[in-house]
Design a protein around this nucleic acid. Structure first.
Lengths: 340, 340
DNA sequence: TCAAATACCGAAAACCTTTTCGATTGTTAT
DNA sequence: ATAACAATCGAAAAGGTTTTCGGTATTTGA
C-alpha cells in the first residue's frame, strides 16, 4: 500500500491536480460541489501530503534541529523535553543530535543539518568548541539559531542563558554568610563559558568578603566523567589540605555527588565537617543523602524559552526582517538543603 | 546566500545537470577531465545536495522516528542516546517524539511521522495503549518498525525486550534465598506488559518457594509520579502491615528510591528491617544511600539492538523481502548492593 | 577507408505539490 | 443581443535531483 497522491485523487474524480490542491487549501475558485467531492475522497483514502514535495516547493521543512553535548543528563533531557513538546504542538518536528562534547562531530552535525534544510537550530556548544565557523555558516545561509546554556559570547545570535556569574556569586556568598571560610571550588575545564563565569562568580564572592582566593583550592575537573571526577578530586583535596577545607562549591551537581560519595565513604560528616554546594538542581540532588544544596537551573523553562525565541526568529525571517539576536536570561535561585 | 544547486554548477561549467550529477555519483560515462572540473567547483562552492529533492526522487528520507513515553528518564535517555549515535554514524537522522504516556498523542505522532515519510520507526508504547490500529497502519504502508521495552505482544513486528518475567523471578528468588519471607511488590498499572510480566515473575518465584501470594502485599503505583508514589505506598504499607514486611520488590528504581526515602525519614533501617530491590539500574541507584540492589537493564544495549534490527528491516524491505519480525531478548543481571 | 565499437554527454521524465495565469463557461446588465 | 463580468477550472512551471536512453564524436580493428 502506497500513500495516495494528488494525482490519484484527481484522476479518480476526473479533475485536475491543481483543482484538488486548491480545494484542499481553501482557494475560492473552486465550486462548493467539487470541493465537497475532493474533501470526501481525501478523507476516505486518508490522503496526506508528501512532505518532501512540500519542502521542495515551499523551501521549508517544518523541522528544527537540536544539538547538545549529552542526552543522558537531567538538565539537557529536560531542555529537550520542553523543546519537543512545544515544537510538536506547533506541528514542528525536531531532529536531535548529540555532539558528545566532540567539536569535530558538532561541526559535522551542523553541516548535516544545514544540508538537510532545517528551519532553525537550537544548539548548546561542546566543551571543546573554540572556533565558530560552523555557526557563521548558519548565519551565511540565514538559518535562524539560538544558543542555549553553553554558548559563545562572541557569536551574534539569540541566546537563552542563566546569569552563571551571579548564580555562583550568590551560592558562594550564602556559604560565606553561613560562616564557611575556606571554600574550595571544583570547576570544569578552562574553556566553556559556563565554567569561566561560575568561577568568576566564586572569585568575586570571595573578594567582596575579603577572603583571599587560594588557587590551590580550585580543582579543574574536565575529563567528562563527573561522578568519578568528583570522587577523585575530593580525595585529592583531602590529601592536599587535610580537613581544613570548610566547604566546596562545584560547577555541577554530579561533581558534588561524587564528592559526597567520597566523604561518606571516608566518614567525613556533611555538612558538619564539610559543606557541599552544587549547581543545576538535578532531580537526583533531592533524593540523595544528604540532600544537596544547589543552584536551581530549570531545564524546562530554558528549553521553552529557547524554542519560543527560535520561533520568533523564524517568523521574523519569514517577514524578511533581520535577526532579532535577543538574549533572554532565565532566573535561578538557591535551593538550600541538608548539605550546607 | 542560498545553497548552490546542480543547475548552477552546470551553468557555470557549461555542461548539463545530468553530467554534474553523474560526475558526483561516480558514473563511468563522464570523462576524467569534466569529473575533475565538477568536483573542484562543487568543493569550492561547497555544494550539498538538496535533501527534499532527494527524498522526493528516491522515495526515502534517511530519517527514522523514535516515539517514547518520557525523555527525562535514565533508561529511555540511554536508549535514545544509543539510537542517535548509531543512526548518525550511518548518516541517518532521528526525529524524536514523546508520547507523555498519552495514547491519543502517541497515535497522532505515528500519523505525523507516517506523513513525514520516515524510513523506519522505533517505538515504546505508552501505559495506556490498548489498541493498535496505529501500528497496523505502519504495516499497511510497509514502514519498518521495532517495538522496544514497552511492547504489545499481539502486534507482529520486530521487538527488542528483556525477559521481564525471568528477571523479576530472579530478583525475588534472590530475596527469598537471602532469607526474606514476606515480600511486597510495588507494581505499575495493570496494562503495560512490563508490569504484568514482572508481577508474574514475582508471583512465580513465590510459588516455586512455597510462599503463598498475599494480594494485600501488592501495591499498584500508576500515577506517573514514581518517586512520590514510592513514598506514598511505602507509608501505606507500613500502616497496613506494620514492620512485618521483610522486603519490597519494585517494578522500577524510582519507586524503590521513593520507598527508601520514606524509610530513612522514618528511621526504618535498610536492609536490616526491610530490604529493597529495584528494577532497571538507573545511575542514581548506585549513588544513593543505601545503594540500591536492582536488575540491570542496559538502555544503551537495548537502543543499539533496536536501531540495528531496524536497519536490518529497512535493508530487508529494500530487497523486497517480507518483514523479519525478529525479537531480540537482551540479557539482564542482578546487581546486588547495600539495600538487600 | 569503412564499419564497428567505445567514450562521453544531454534531453527528458519522474518524484509530488503549489500557484500563477489564461481559458472557458455561465451570468448579469445594458 | 451583446458586452462585461463572475465563476470555475486546468495547463504549466517551478522546486532539485536521479537515471534511462538516445545521440554524437572519437577510437579501434580489419
Amino acid at each position: 500500500m502506497r500513500p495516495v497522491t494528488l494525482k490519484e485523487i484527481a484522476k479518480e474524480l476526473g479533475i485536475s491536480v491543481a483543482t484538488v490542491s486548491k480545494a484542499l487549501k481553501g482557494y475560492q475558485d473552486v465550486s462548493p460541489k467539487t470541493r465537497k467531492r475532493v474533501l470526501e475522497l481525501t478523507e476516505k483514502l486518508n490522503y496526506s501530503p508528501n512532505t518532501a514535495a512540500i519542502s521542495l516547493r515551499k523551501q521549508h521543512t517544518k523541522t528544527i534541529g537540536v544539538i547538545i553535548p549529552t542526552i543522558v543528563h537531567y538538565f539537557f533531557s529536560s531542555v529537550i523535553e520542553a523543546i519537543i513538546k512545544i515544537a510538536d504542538s506547533k506541528d514542528y518536528l525536531v531532529i536531535l543530535l548529540q555532539s558528545d562534547e566532540n567539536f569535530e562531530l558538532e561541526k559535522k552535525q551542523v553541516n548535516l543539518l544545514l544540508s538537510k534544510g532545517i528551519d532553525g537550530l537550537i544548539i548548546s556548544l561542546s566543551n571543546h568548541t573554540r572556533t565558530y565557523t560552523h555557526l557563521k555558516k548558519l548565519q551565511d545561509y540565514n538559518v535562524p539559531f539560538v544558543q542555549i546554556d553553553k554558548i559563545s559570547k562572541i557569536v551574534h545570535s539569540s541566546k537563552v542563558i542563566i546569569d552563571d556569574r551571579k548564580a555562583a556569586y550568590n551560592a558562594v556568598s550564602y556559604l560565606i554568610e553561613k560562616g564557611y571560610k575556606k571554600i574550595a571550588h571544583f570547576r570544569a575545564g578552562l574553556n566553556p563559558q559556563n565554567s569561566i563565569d561560575r568561577y568568576l562568580g566564586y572569585k568575586k564572592a570571595l573578594e567582596d568578603n575579603d577572603i583571599p582566593l587560594d588557587p590551590s583550592l580550585v580543582y579543574i575537573c574536565d575529563n567528562n566523567r563527573d561522578f568519578e571526577d568528583g570522587i577523585f578530586n575530593a580525595e585529592k583535596m583531602i590529601k592536599e589540605h587535610g580537613n581544613s577545607v570548610d566547604a566546596i562549591f562545584t560547577v555541577n551537581d554530579m561533581l558534588a555527588i561524587g564528592a559526597i560519595h567520597y566523604f561518606r565513604n571516608n566518614d567525613i560528616k556533611i555538612p558538619e565537617e564539610i559543606a557541599v554546594f552544587g549547581f543545576s538542581n538535578w532531580f537526583m540532588s533531592s533524593v540523595i543523602s544528604p540532600k544537596l544544596s544547589t543552584v536551581n537551573q530549570d531545564g524546562s523553562i530554558m528549553g521553552e524559552a529557547a524554542i519560543n525565541v527560535l520561533f520568533e526568529e523564524i517568523e521574523n525571517k519569514r517577514a524578511g526582517k533581520p535577526a532579532l539576536n535577543k538574549t533572554v536570561v532565565i532566573d535561578t535561585d538557591l535551593v538550600i538543603r541538608e548539605s550546607t
